[in-house]
Design a protein around this nucleic acid. Sequence first.
DNA 1: ATTAGCACTCTCCCTTTACGAGTGCTAATC
DNA 2: GATTAGCACTCGTAAAGGGAGAGTGCTAAT
Lengths: 344, 344
Amino acid sequence: MQLGRRKLQILQAVIQDYISSGEPVGSRTIAKKYGMGISPATIRNEMSDLEEMGYLQQPHTSAGRIPSDKAYRLYVDKLMETRNLTPDEAQRIREICNQKTTEIEEIIEQVANILSDITNYTSVVLGPRLNKVLIRRIELIAIDRQYALLLVVTSAGIIKDTLIRIPDNIDAGYLERISNMLTKYYRDKTFADVNIKHATDLQKELMRQKEFIRNILDALTNSIANKRQSDIYLGGTANIFNFPEYQDIIKARDFLNLMENKDILYNLFSQYEEDDVVIVIGTENEYNEMQDCSVVMGTYSIGDKVLGSMGLIGPTRMEYSKVVSIMRHVGESVSNYLTLLFKE
Amino acid sequence: MQLGRRKLQILQAVIQDYISSGEPVGSRTIAKKYGMGISPATIRNEMSDLEEMGYLQQPHTSAGRIPSDKAYRLYVDKLMETRNLTPDEAQRIREICNQKTTEIEEIIEQVANILSDITNYTSVVLGPRLNKVLIRRIELIAIDRQYALLLVVTSAGIIKDTLIRIPDNIDAGYLERISNMLTKYYRDKTFADVNIKHATDLQKELMRQKEFIRNILDALTNSIANKRQSDIYLGGTANIFNFPEYQDIIKARDFLNLMENKDILYNLFSQYEEDDVVIVIGTENEYNEMQDCSVVMGTYSIGDKVLGSMGLIGPTRMEYSKVVSIMRHVGESVSNYLTLLFKE
DNA sequence: ATTAGCACTCTCCCTTTACGAGTGCTAATC
DNA sequence: GATTAGCACTCGTAAAGGGAGAGTGCTAAT
């Protein structure tokens, strides 16, 4: 069977109506609201075909139809019209650039809040990824007699800092020497490449100050793993209650548990680093905990280097066209702002 | 009317039963389960008295009784027996000290997770407060040609760092001079005391490098306000669904909205900084959003200096004795561990 | 090919009914 | 005088019944 022009029109009408109402859509509704000069009976026939083709489904015999994931996929790929921002949305997005802070974490947190506020979905924003970023400089700064700050400057301007306990009999000159060594060996490497193997000077030093050097190296190599845990910002987790499909307490709980599971979120968002927006609809998602949801993912960058991901999660009947356009604009705005701040 | 021994026993039985079941408690249940050699009819009479005195209430005429906030208050003050930790709980608490990290934020985040895990309530942990802590040293460290790191070492060993943009024509010597100036004026002051008024050298410098100096001072004074926003760690927000009183979707949503409102949480937890555990029951709470909940609050310290607050939030029929003992032990463990790490 | 008409299905919501848990009161008992 | 058995009464809940309404699929007419 072919997906003719009229079938497409009807499918589009069903999808749009269902997205905005959340109720199964009947033939009469379509004939009235989206009247295209054909009677409900004709529409019924077409809908029956669309069901056979896997684009529509019926919750029960005497109900209207709802779109399948396949239908949403077709919709976002072919049917959906891009939508402009409302003045209010544009205004909120502009707020990203009006921050008092220059700390990337705080900017990102605010992005999460703005995203969830203007879309009414749940937002997820990942902090800058350290796994692709190159180390530029490593510096040990004495804080007091017991601690030094391990400071890492990276190609994305991000600073990773950790407190390191220093042994007793150690002076500032020694710290500087180690700093230079570290910078020498690991400059232009990633955190994953940090390794003692070919760093002969460091190996010697490891003999003398075993615990100290080990702590430093651990801090460097662990930074990716640690970031993973802590650098996920959520916004509007309670927004999910706005949707009738989540009035069921069990579904709502499962959703919230999912949002607390940082590992799944991290893995999900790490898979994609396209420049443009990526949409994952319902069962297209490999995590079964999320097969009732759709995710719209975007990225933010410094210059042309993708730095991190963000996304909006909601029911599969998400307002894709709104969400996609907002995600694009937010991505651009954040990237521009960050580039302005951090690009050399 | 007097609260005799028998009335107390009955009240305690009602409270304990209601805490564990969540169902209104009837006279027969008490006679059977907590049999104290008196008949249901006698218990009914006593319960009727207890209701008159404001300790019990009936959801409706033909239901059992549930304890009032006043009853819980009496219970936690007088009736409750302290309970020992189970081996499993003790084990989980010990995990706090087995961390790889020395970053206080990560430790605190894990504390939030452990608290909610072992209690099954929602945990809130506030990061270290900056408003009581004294500045020890301020240091500007050049990162590259555009940015310097503003580093503040405080009496609680906490380091507050911010990126500051530096003007073009500036050398390392200048940064050092400013650092010394800042340390000179603000050493042993709090962040709230940072002010340009009596800092004559700085005023002069402000003329020359207006934006730069202003940025530094802003970063210092804003640090408290900024911390407020970002330094609240939540654990187990979805735990609230475990309780039948939150099966109502509206209640659950209100609770979760509350947990997203960092301002309320911050204010609530800032009020108390007792050494011992503080319990706020239902309507004792000044925020009406929380009058269905109880909060058990504790603190953690470095040495004998209280550093931050933490708490567990749940329905008023909370397992107070369990929660209080866990809160005490966690407080001790965190404090010991932090003291070990940071105390000079 | 399209459409009007109609019987049929299924959900939702309302009412009714029955049941059970628990109470308060009264009168008997220790 | 305190305690208790007995009993009528109340109220919430769960199950059962009964439209109403929305929507379908099929058939026959256009």
